[in-house]
Amino acid sequence: MLRVHRPGLMTTVQDAGRVGAYHLGMPPSGAMDRFSFSVANLLVGNTDAHAALECTYLGPEIEFTEPAHIAVTGADMPLKINGEPVDGWTCHAVSPGEVVSFDFLKAGARAYLAVSGGIDVPPVLGSRSTYTLTGTGGLDGRALREGDELKTGAAATSAAAGASVPEELRTVHPSQVELRVVVGLASYRLVPESLAAFFTTDWRVTPDANRVGYRYRGGAIEFVDRTPPAGAGSDPANVVDIGYPVGSIQVPGGSEPIALLHDAVTAGGYATIATIISADLGRAGQSRTNDVTRFVEVTLEEALTARHELAARLTRVHEALGAG
């Protein structure tokens, strides 16, 4: 069992996501940085089917009451066991009574703490991921609190303390990030110069940045004049309702782009001008308030190539860890 001494700022149970209910208005939730999540699980002998803890900005302090293997990946948030610093991206054995805690965040936004056997909470629609807006999944549908107790599932025997991800396969988190996007679905609503300027603007992540979406500041977006069609609202950014892809960017009011992420609304009436490619969603989720973001246009083909490259990188981690 895991006893939560201190919850951190926003620590939630997340897995690979609640996929398949988007048409019902249910966003996928799940780890914001899927690569780091998968690697953390791999290090402790888990699979993507196991849930881990996503620790945002400020890590929790957790006591283990049973022996377990743990690993922390993702953000550079130095891990400590009983106050002693230990390496990230590495499998560690913890003994009953030992306390896991974190130092201040150094880079990135979200660390993933995987525990052998996974965090055992009841799956909802096939996933243990927490969707706090509706109180779905996770531990009672919310972030961890002081005094919470978490059970773990049956651990695989394959975890090996000391197993470590080679440096070149770990992710780093610069404070200036480039996020690749595919233009659309409603980019026709922008004047062409404004769409061009979107890609040359330094967009700063505002404090309004969480699992639902990231709001950016730094420029303005100009929409083409028009008479709203039947069904569309009067804001120039309005369109007749459309489905929002995960990672899509909308600009209500024309000044602050919002990237919709894993816990976002699934449809609505704002023009989405571009969509962050799936391979870069993890990078988006590791950017943090006050960081600078540039959006870079790519084709759908390039987006698919990037997705395959990320999958290949995960395969290399499998191989490096001898996990096949």
Binding site: L9, Y57, L58, F104, L105, P207, R288, T289, N290
Partner: peptide, 9 residues
């Protein structure tokens, strides 16, 4: 006194 996380003070 340190900022435990990023944001606006």
């Amino acid at each position: 006194v340190h900022a435990p996380f990023p944001g606006v003070f």
